[in-house]
Nucleic acid binder design. Structure first.
Lengths: 246, 246
DNA sequence: CGCAATTCTTGATCTGAGTCAATGCACCAG
DNA sequence: CTGGTGCATTGACTCAGATCAAGAATTGCG
């Protein structure tokens, strides 16, 4: 489990850190959650749960990236959720995992045993309130994603994905997201293809095209530099009112 | 407002009828909800709210069909939600509508003023609990839809949509969904195209193809007969374990 | 009833993305 | 340094679905 040395302080104001459930929680809940909390790490590529498995925990992503995906028997797969640090995994009140969950990169989860977590939820309305908020956010993300999958061209899809990741990185690092953003791509070309409903060859070609056209710069295969975020935003095909509306 | 003569009885066990929020509500809530309840009707094609509009109500669909959709400036649009009778519209705690909501067919909503509804929610944990349940269901539906949009062929998309509607119809009418299902398509070809990320021509062609291959029968343009649900299920490309897992 | 307006179907052609296949590039182990 | 293994890139070709363009069927209305 590597050099995990988390404690309250590092976790922020609440054991379910990173804005996940916290914000309004008080000390009692902190201590109560602490009692049912444990950390877990996974290697890149390692499965966390398979669709249909019983899940006896809920969790918050501490570091790394995980994906939710659905597979068809013939091998076609579609990613339906991407969990970055601060995102929440699991569904209180539901036993079975509806998707395959896989660690895309090395990953650390902050887990809570599900039953006690649910019991706490029942007693603390603002926690359920927060869970509803988070679920609505996920729903919004899924629906933005549906527009991407259904109506955007391959180039727009890639631009949209890069913009989404760039925004997330910026919001976590509290960087002013003016221009000159850069980040490490947490996904392989194949994972990006699964995210966007493309093939990995098309992903590779479109990334090359965006590079050729000066929209992005690559350092190595994974490090992306975005010299002009507004330019990237235009390539997404979305409303051009730009800005980070998180 | 046509011949609306709803009352508690007709609405089922709860004013937010059709399993929407009800199930576990008690008489106090019934009466409380009644005080803030009103019905509204819309003509086919009529907009209900535009993306960004302030929404001062939440509602449950009584009859008819409504769609949630997202539009790009250049006219491309993607439907991101389809509301059939018993579905819930609106998001407690959020002011602005995130999508365009349009009445696809003639539509009746059972509305509740948002503020009092939210206040009631805060006081009655099991109602928020139920809201969370419903939101998770919507999320699951959105993610199933993402697989359809990202990875299925046009033929599989049409079959999937027909299967989804057939299932819904069956579950509402409490029909045994063995074989010989039939229903009126609540969507135009164009709306189906917006749902599935296709063009209306492709929708038309694939429906014709399914008819030619005996998977479905058409009576007129809108009435669909499904002689063998399992056969349709196979055409969807999904797990062939068939059955209605609602 | 007849005429216009929708909505749907079908055909011909074009094209963006998929498929198949080769090659390139890092990084690691022996 | 050398062969191997896992990503990534690039090219040549194909094809599913989009686009453009007529018509046909339904519906509605004066």
């Amino acid at each position: 489990m590597s050099d995990m040395t988390f404690n309250h302080k590092e976790c922020g104001s609440c054991p379910i850190r990173h804005r996940a459930v916290c914000a309004r929680c008080d000390v009692d809940e902190l201590e109560e959650l602490d009692a049912i909390k444990y950390y877990r790490s996974y290697e890149a590529g390692q499965p966390i749960v398979w669709s249909g498995d019983r899940m006896d925990f809920v969790a918050s992503v501490v570091t790394g990236v995980a994906s939710l995906s659905q597979a068809m028997e013939d091998g076609r797969t579609q990613m339906v959720g991407l969990l970055l640090p601060s995102d929440f995994l699991g569904r209180p009140g539901r036993d079975a995992a509806p998707y395959d969950v896989v660690a895309v990169s090395n990953l650390t989860l902050c887990c809570f045993r599900r039953k006690p977590f649910e019991q706490m939820m029942l007693r603390t309305p603002h926690v359920s309130q927060r869970l509803l908020e988070m679920t609505l956010d996920e729903l919004d993300a899924a629906r933005e994603w549906m527009l991407i999958l259904g109506r955007k061209t391959a180039r727009e899809k890639i631009a949209s994905l890069l913009a989404i990741i760039a925004r997330r990185e910026a919001s976590l690092e509290l960087t002013t997201a003016g221009d000159g953003m850069d980040f490490e791509l947490p996904l392989t070309r194949e994972a990006m293809a699964d995210y966007l409903g493309l093939t990995l060859e098309t992903v590779s070609r479109q990334i090359s095209a965006l590079k050729r056209d000066g929209v992005i710069t690559l350092e190595g295969k994974r490090k992306v530099v975005i010299p002009d975020y507004d330019r990237l935003q235009i390539e997404t095909g979305d409303d051009t009112d730009g800005g980070l509306m998180i």
